[in-house]
Amino acid sequence: MMPKIALKGVNKSFGHVNNAFVALSDLSFDIRAGEFLAVVGPSGCGKTTVLNMLAGLDSPSSGQILLDGVAISGPGAERGVMFQDYALFPWRTVRGNIEFGLLYGKPGQGVSSEARRKRVDDAIALVGLSGAENKYPHQLSGGMRQRVALGRLVANQPDILLMDEPLAALDAQTRIILQEELLRIWGQDTAQETRRTVMFVTHGIDEAVFLADRVVVLSSHPGRLKAIVDIDLPRPRNGETRKSARFAELSQEIWELIREEAYRATMK
């Protein structure tokens, strides 16, 4: 089966030829349709660069990134992005933010205003923001802002969700709750064919193991593929999953892969 997204020998460097900073070197991996793929690695491994290229905000210096077999040349309505700082529009309410893409962007083309309202209502309910529709982002807690960003993403109904450390700015308890929420919204209880494709960039190993079907481990300076780890934990995953021996084992395995570099990065 053709992968949803295929990275083939992707290189990315910034700056001038003589003085270039190599962010990614010869990176190849696939993302399968309906799969939850996490990308982890020490800081400086180019995780965000990968995500930006998939989003169409940046392009590889060489190599190819194929979406359904076609090279990505820019952003598209079939891909939705959730940014680390949420990128909410401060002048729009919760509702205004969630309907933004449908109102002004490609995802809303051909959507009647009635259908739009329905989709926005559904998204608000799905992320648990009913009753807070008319609040502004500055009136919300970090966890609620994150929900708004997620609501905006799902309202646009993209096939592929690209998430750049969306839970990094939250406190530990909120993060754990939202991880489970995220799996529910993604559809871990439903059949695999109906699930969206997710690429989730994170620096949290536990988070990656808890959420993902597979974890791509990158090394840093430059970013290279170190390993791809299959996460064979059963779904649906919940609090029990975190307590299982297999969860600890997989987390440990990934930690071993990046430990040395993480130490080096910290000491530098």
Partner: peptide
């Protein structure tokens, strides 16, 4: 204007004119 707002708008495929009135104008307000 916060660059991440522009990137968010970009990923949602806003046309340049829409970007002007739906993002830049209110953000610069």
């Amino acid at each position: 204007v916060e660059p991440s707002l522009l990137r968010a708008a970009h990923t949602m495929g806003l046309s340049p004119l829409t970007r002007l009135h739906a993002v830049l104008l209110p953000a610069a307000m």
